[in-house]
Simulated assay, not measured.
Amino acid sequence: MFFIHTKFLLIDPLSDDPLVCTGSANFSANSLLHNDENMLLIRGDIRVADIYLTEFDRIFRHFFARNAINKIAAGGEKLGAASSSTRHPSGATSSSSPTASNADGGRCSSPIRRRAG
């Protein structure tokens, strides 16, 4: 298991009404209640959600691979056949394809497929 520290939160990023929360605030009581932080809520913008989800996917894959390599180097675990898909905490499924269509038919560089509504 590994954790990713980000300054954004995605809620239903593959839906028709995604919510992106981003800014300088950490998701802690002190940051949200006592510090002079900012938080931007972007709702319903599929393009922005796709961009943030693509960045999450990039970070997730980087640290997933790094975690696996560290386990192999430590001699603690052998990897089986590589899976062509990974289940993210968001519920999104990523694959190894180079491009994906977003909801309006445009092309984006995310390998994540938007769920059918």
Results as ranks from 00 to 15, higher is better:
M1L: 13
F2M: 11
F3Q: 09
I4Q: 10
K7T: 02
F8L: 05
L9S: 13
S15N: 06
S15A: 07
D17G: 00
L19F: 04
V20F: 00
A25C: 08
N26I: 09
N26G: 02
N30L: 13
N30P: 15
S31I: 06
H34S: 13
N35S: 12
D36C: 10
D45C: 14
R47G: 12
V48G: 00
D50W: 03
D50H: 02
I51D: 09
Y52G: 01
Y52I: 05
T54A: 03
F56T: 04
R58A: 09
F60P: 05
H62W: 13
H62F: 14
N67F: 14
N70D: 06
N70L: 01
N70C: 00
I72N: 10
A74G: 08
G76H: 10
E77A: 10
G80H: 10
A82W: 12
S84M: 13
S84P: 04
S90E: 08
S90L: 03
G91A: 05
A92S: 00
T93N: 09
S94W: 02
S94Y: 08
S96C: 12
S96F: 05
T99A: 07
T99Y: 12
S101M: 15
N102G: 03
G106L: 13
C108P: 02
S110F: 00
P111I: 04
A116H: 15
